[in-house]
Design a binder for these strands. Structure first.
Lengths: 215, 215
DNA sequence: GTCTATAAAAGGATAGAC
DNA sequence: GTCTATCCTTTTATAGAC
């Protein structure tokens, strides 16, 4: 609809960005297809059709199926883990701060888009080891780094007792993932509402603090 | 080799078991191919070749690709989770018993064969929801059931304080999986030796007991 | 039951016009 | 840059001989 006929509007930046929006359409379509069908069963035909462009256009932009897959997954890794940052408010009590972090963490990792990404990365970890490493760095490793710094502060302040901040941070997130993470990975249960994660947060924070009493 | 020519030895039970051992060969070959390539990229040709039989023989036994996949995964689910049973020795101290259970649990879930199975089940959970459910029941659910019964006993005996045995059992296994489970899922690290899981066991048991003090 | 073809379709990738 | 049409390979599944 709305043909521009022969007039060539120069809206294309040399390398990357939206020629007419087709590249963006391809990226979004590829994300949908790859994250639902998986790498093996996703077809370039299906991606082109979903994007509303020809297959050749897809190849012009990304060259090959594996390159397109890598581009999609790398992009998703960068964007989806952003919310899991440091506790936030500086003056608040550490129990409150940990609870806040826990809620944001669980909301992020249990989100359907994030679960779909993780499933695909896990499935293709053998064929695309760099993607698995990128996912781990962008997600779990970043979360642990942030929390361990905060735990070290709390230990210095005498609020809690933490001998190995990194190990304790890993333990904290592990307690939060819990059994529900397995059920989400296996697609046995839908994205849980806030009411359902609240008991998990309480259990994990309480257990963590009990295991890290000061002194 | 060793032709039986026309003589038909009646060693074939009506439905399931080894005609000449070919069915077994197909099952083992299909397991290898499916667990390394994944469902989408695994081909019936590759399975037949790996088994050393013709493709038609594979189809004669299992009918279709998805049926073969289901048979393989169901079989693996049943066999691989067997070692994760109750603590074992009846008279021992609960701290020792939990440590023993923890070691067996981690050795089981971190085993390469088990990780490969889990990756495939996760990847295909959308297309084969029954397999995902079967895996969860045979593995995590069974482990939790066993432990929660033991925890309830310990609580009645006053050894530890457990308000919700199921929730506490889930927490225990969650602490054990920890960060290393993610790294194993993503194939970022090989099967860890006993020396590497020992600190995790100690950390988890200590934290669990600290969080479940009696009274 | 098992094998050697073969059918029928789908997939990744490319050529050439506009 | 984008499209249509096409090449070649692989794939699932089946027919028919032994």
């Amino acid at each position: 609809m709305a043909k521009t006929t022969t007039a060539k509007i120069s809206e294309t930046a040399a390398t990357g960005d939206a020629p007419t929006g087709k590249r963006r359409a391809i990226v979004e379509a590829a994300a949908r297809v790859f994250l639902t069908a998986g790498y093996g069963l996703a077809s370039m035909d299906a991606i082109a059709a979903e994007a509303g462009v020809s297959k050749q256009t897809v190849y012009s932009h990304f060259g090959a199926k594996d390159a397109l897959f890598e581009a999609i997954v790398q992009g998703k890794c960068a964007e989806l883990m952003a919310p899991v940052q440091l506790p936030g408010v500086p003056g608040q009590h550490h129990k409150t701060a940990l609870g806040e972090l826990a809620r944001r963490f669980l909301a992020t990792i249990f989100a359907s888009a994030n679960m779909a990404l993780f499933r695909v990365v896990v499935a293709e970890s053998g064929r695309f080891p760099e993607l698995a490493a990128a996912f781990y760095r962008a997600g779990p490793a970043t979360a642990v780094d942030n929390l361990s710094g905060y735990l070290a502060e709390l230990d210095r302040a005498g609020a809690i007792g933490v001998a190995d901040p990194t190990a304790s941070a890993k333990l904290f997130f592990a307690m939060l993932r819990g059994d529900l993470y397995l059920r989400r990975l296996l697609d046995l249960t839908p994205e849980p509402p806030a009411a359902e994660i609240e008991p998990l947060v309480r259990q994990a924070v309480a257990a963590f603090l009990a295991a890290h009493a000061p002194d």
